[in-house]
Simulated scan of single mutants.
Amino acid sequence: MEHKQIIAKDVDTGLRLDKYLTEQLVPFSRSRIQMLFAKGAITVNGKLGKANYKVKNDDVIEVMIEDEQEANAQPEAMDLDIVYEDEDVIVINKPKGMVVHPSPGNEAHTLVNGLLYHCKDLSGINGVLRPGIVHRIDKDTSGLLVAAKNDRAHQLLAEQLKDKTMNRRYYALVHGVMPHDHGTIDAPIGRDEKDRQKMAVTAHNSKPAITHFQVIERFAQHTLLECRLETGRTHQIRVHLQYIKFPIVGDPKYGRRKTEMSGGQLLHAHQLTFVHPTSQASMTFEAPLPPQFASVLDELRKREG
């Protein structure tokens, strides 16, 4: 564990703490600094630091940095479900239970390890632990994501995420019977102040988050939804559906503690649309429901058939 102390000097009025630290902790990326905030590893004058805090001259900023396990992610042979691949991009159907990229405690057996073995080369924009990763899906969520093989492709795909032209659709089985055929959840998401491992709908230190949903099928006590992400906040669909009192079946973090269903977290990224960075063609990919998810739906239909 490394301890850094920075005493702010000659600070521009109104400079945010996250931006200030990006300048002070070269070559740390902004995403890594945000991770330090999320872990509560940054304090200002002895108090927990917030990313949007306005730095003042003579502030004492302390940063606790875990020892670098950021040894380069190692290539690892694994059976990847490759939906599409060319010299710029690779689209993967990720199984439930697979972590997307290495992190402390999950250094191996991640999607990145498998991609490095298969592709040999990936974009370097996100550093040595997240090469090629343009967007993520949670460990317990199955389905589609696209990775970039070079920096140019990565930048163009990231721009589509930013301007909301990359279309990502998910199937979610939720507790409760949704009364509306479709709707939009527009509620900002930020770190849960009571539990730093969770996200929550909150007005404090949050970012805008928008999820659109459409009812696909109703059951006696459950509803199958298709959700479309307009923004891409951490755990967004899971948090939003919990917020409106329709939590995802099997969600270990935001769902109900007791449930009779046995399919695990029933959230699946089934459709992905983006513009190819070189050909400029619009490309749409689909991934069928995984067997566990499909079997739960079949069981619900049999009960009510």
Rank of each mutant, 00 (worst) to 15 (best):
214 Q>P: 12
219 F>E: 02
202 T>R: 11
203 A>W: 03
204 H>R: 08
224 L>T: 06
234 T>K: 06
202 T>L: 03
194 K>E: 07
224 L>N: 00
199 M>A: 05
199 M>Y: 02
207 K>Y: 11
201 V>I: 12
194 K>I: 02
233 R>C: 12
234 T>L: 11
225 L>P: 00
216 I>A: 02
220 A>D: 15
202 T>P: 09
227 C>S: 06
193 E>N: 14
217 E>M: 10
205 N>S: 12
205 N>M: 10
204 H>S: 10
224 L>K: 01
224 L>E: 02
208 P>L: 06
228 R>Q: 15
204 H>P: 06
211 T>H: 00
213 F>Q: 00
217 E>N: 07
218 R>I: 00
232 G>E: 13
229 L>M: 00
233 R>I: 08
226 E>Y: 03
199 M>F: 05
229 L>A: 03
196 R>G: 12
207 K>V: 00
210 I>E: 03
216 I>K: 02
229 L>K: 00
213 F>T: 01
211 T>L: 11
201 V>K: 03
234 T>C: 13
207 K>Q: 14
214 Q>R: 14
232 G>K: 07
221 Q>E: 15
206 S>H: 01
202 T>I: 04
207 K>D: 10
230 E>F: 11
233 R>Q: 08
218 R>M: 04
201 V>W: 03
199 M>W: 03
234 T>F: 13
204 H>T: 14
223 T>D: 04
231 T>R: 01
